[in-house]
């Protein structure tokens, strides 16, 4: 007994504040930034290097624009390795969640009006997603035939979110994740993050939950389970898409065995990009995201 206490005392106070975890708690990737935009010559090797089309190029009237899609980037750092001018860098711990209505891309580099002549990038690099010919509605039969996917979006009202009163009970739903995201969510329960002190808890049944935290792209094998869990959750039900897989299908996008992200099946409230997002990112999204959601609702 005393030994327990001694160990507990010796381990000290570990818990960090949600928005400020030490950089070493994070993966080396966070949000991709152009730290030296002036060096960019628009060669586009980064776009070609990206295996998941998280970088794209848009040609405007007088130049080009590089766009970055955080919900797709798996943090493989190949773009950074490919860039000969060291333009790009990941700013650790800068990744943020995405609320409904936020564009899923951000401007990384704007070479318009820079007078820079750019080498045209062949279209091969900008392949559209291979999942294009998939439509989630046509493909559901037996038992689920009268249901239209994605399930309809519910409008959230301030009252809905206020009713949570800083007490968010989540039901975790693993629908095809690699368990990286799940492990980071388990870490949330540990002393370094300790979600419970913030009123957040992971509950055993969807019937006790205010929110579903979804990891994985939603495998087609688990559609029924997803559907039933979602409908068993009382309203107002929020859905957090944790990780790139849940945001966009991630690396599995376009596979015959998955839906390309949670939004193809259920209405997603907040997307948390990252592969996997670190526990700090998830915690930040669960607390800050909810606050911002309320502000949005207030405005509307």
């Amino acid at each position: 007994m005393f030994e327990n206490l001694m160990i507990a005392i010796r381990s000290g106070f570990l818990t960090g504040t949600p928005t400020r975890f030490k950089p070493h708690a994070r993966n080396a990737h966070g949000s991709l930034e152009a730290v030296a935009a002036n060096r960019c010559n628009g060669c586009g090797v980064c776009v070609k290097a990206c295996p998941v089309n998280a970088l794209s190029v848009r040609t405007t009237e007088d130049g080009m624009e590089f766009l970055f899609h955080p919900g797709r980037c798996v943090g493989c750092v190949r773009c950074i390795d490919a860039c000969t001018k060291s333009v790009l860098r990941f700013i650790p711990g800068n990744s943020t969640f995405q609320l409904p209505g936020t564009p899923d891309q951000k401007k990384l580099l704007d070479l318009s009006r820079s007078g820079m002549t750019s080498t045209p990038i062949d279209d091969g690099a900008l392949v559209s997603s291979p999942g294009d010919n998939k439509s989630s509605e046509e493909c559901v039969s037996t038992n689920l035939e009268n249901i239209k996917f994605p399930l309809s979006t519910e409008a959230y009202k301030t009252a809905d979110i206020a009713v949570l009163r800083n007490s968010l009970h989540c039901r975790h739903l693993d629908v095809g994740s690699c368990n990286g995201c799940d492990n980071e969510m388990i870490a949330l329960g540990g002393p370094h993050y300790d979600v419970q002190r913030l009123g957040i808890d992971f509950v055993a049944s969807p019937r006790h939950a205010d929110a579903l935290t979804l990891t994985g792209p939603i495998s087609r094998n688990s559609l029924v389970a997803t559907y039933e869990t979602f409908t068993a959750t009382p309203k107002p039900r929020l859905v957090f898409a944790v990780g790139n897989c849940a945001c966009s299908g991630g690396i599995f996008e376009g596979s015959y065995a998955v839906f390309d992200g949670a939004s193809k099946v259920v209405p997603v409230t907040i997307r948390i990009p990252g592969c996997p997002p670190t526990p700090g990112d998830i915690l930040n999204a669960l607390t800050e995201g909810l606050k911002q959601l309320q502000t949005i609702c207030d405005r509307e």
Binding site: D174, C181, S255
Partner: peptide
């Protein structure tokens, strides 16, 4: 329930492309 078709997705890719799939088959 977690079947994502990794083996099929890897077909037709070069080793570097499939590497991402191997890395993300299981987190731990």
């Amino acid at each position: 329930f977690c079947h994502r078709g990794i083996e099929k997705l890897a077909e037709g890719r070069d080793p570097l492309g499939a590497l991402l799939l191997a890395e993300r088959q299981c987190g731990t």
